[in-house]
């Protein structure tokens, strides 16, 4: 099993963190994993993306040409990365910010990540909503392990935010399961 994921959105949407939670969870599940950020002169509001590869065997290149999954959190990221999805690959699409996108030969899962996050009281957890939707759709790593990872990754002074992040994860999964 090798799963190549590109996560894209804008700076401030927690794109890097979303990738790190996937990577941390995969590590805990004894998978090989690489996490590679786009590390240009990134700024809040600018474009941001990272590449995560999960595998049962040693990973060579951490770069992704064609992704098994693209998680697109804003409209710009769709323009930039729509051609980087593999034939029959998965597209998790933040339908709160991306409207009426269609693409042949791609499995599209629309999830109103930002609206669900706002409903929970903090639009910053839209990334965890997307993660929940992704893990409900593709069982590469168990959602329970992701919850544990979130809990342990949270620094001591941010433990209060664990609950809403896990709630977001669950809501995302619920949304994907329709």
């Amino acid at each position: 099993m090798t799963e190549k994921i590109i996560i894209a959105g804008s700076g401030g949407q927690g794109i890097m963190l979303l990738g790190k939670v996937i990577a941390e969870t995969a590590m805990r599940e004894n998978k090989f994993v690489t996490w590679l950020p786009a590390y240009g002169a990134e700024v809040r509001g600018g474009a941001a993306h990272c590449a995560v590869i999960i595998s049962d065997t040693e990973i060579g290149s951490p770069l992704i040409d064609k992704a098994d999954t693209l998680i697109a959190m804003n409209a710009l990221s769709i323009i930039k990365f729509q051609n980087r999805i593999k034939n029959k690959g998965l597209l998790i699409l933040n339908s709160s910010l991306i409207h009426q996108f269609k693409k042949a030969k791609v499995d599209i899962l629309e999830c109103p990540c930002t609206e669900i996050a706002e409903g929970l009281g903090n639009n910053k957890v839209a990334n965890m909503v997307a993660l929940g939707a992704y893990l409900a759709k593709k069982t590469v790593i168990p959602i329970r392990a992701a919850q544990e990872a979130i809990n342990e990754m949270a620094p001591a002074d941010k433990k209060a935010l664990v609950e809403i992040n896990i709630k977001a994860l669950q809501e995302g999964a619920k949304s994907a399961n329709g």
Binding site: K20, A23, M27, V33, T34, W35, L36, P37, P62, L63
Partner: peptide, 10 residues
């Protein structure tokens, strides 16, 4: 190089 410096692995 920058790739190795920036990438994360277990």
């Amino acid at each position: 190089d920058g790739m190795l410096g920036q990438m994360m692995e277990p």
